[in-house]
Amino acid sequence: MLEIRNLSARVEGNDILRQLSLSIRPGEVHAIMGPNGAGKSTLGNVLAGRPGYEVTGGEVLFHGKDLLAMEIEERAREGVFLAFQYPVEIPGVSNMEFLKAAVDARRRHLGLGELSSFDFMKLARDAAKRVNLDQAFLKRGVNEGFSGGEKKRNEILQMMLLEPSLCILDETDSGLDIDALQVVAAGVNAMRDGQRSFIVVTHYQRLLDYIVPDHVHVLAAGRIARSGSKELALELEAKGYSWLEDEGV
């Protein structure tokens, strides 16, 4: 469902991704690990179309379509979802209004009708419950005054409502205590349905105790230095990342 071929990208004049290739089939969970600065977050941002991330080579096919040619919102409507490492606070815009606009945009794209306010409220309340977020958060400004954990749960809530086919979690575990981590992981696991695919970007192995990946990739210097099964993550946890360099990978 996602085919990344020789992807190179640059941020502020620095080459970050260097001919990275990765293939993801429906239903798979891929963990991307690696040291700081390896390009982990860049990969997610490039896939989502973030301005300032300049693609200098390669291609990305998403369900057979040229992802890199699409506008940011088209990618989202096609089913790409990036859970932000730092979700943005938008005072004055109600979370509920924002969520409904997002869900309506996706539904229109899929040829489904917009939901009535009533049906949407029901859906949103239900999702909030599942990520253990009080209903009051739906009425507040988008992420306004949310704690770190609340912001991350709000990301998962959006993911549940939008039902994307590719979910990219960008260091979703950073800044989470163990309870919040379990809530987030449970939300993600509930969405694993054999069709939906995940890219889980993380610095630590801890998250992968809860979201068990099918594949683990180690990113170093802008490309995949090593791939393996979930045991690779444990090995990394034990040895750190420096052994990669020692092995001259």
Binding site: A76, V88, L162
Partner: peptide, 29 residues
């Protein structure tokens, strides 16, 4: 804020919708 615009668009809102929503948010308080 360009980051806020990206955030809204990454959820499927058009560029225009994002700008309008952010403008409204600025005075909504």
């Amino acid at each position: 804020d360009p980051t806020a615009q990206f955030y809204l668009r990454s959820r499927g809102l058009s560029a225009i919708q994002a700008r309008s929503m952010l403008s409204f948010g600025f005075i909504n308080e």
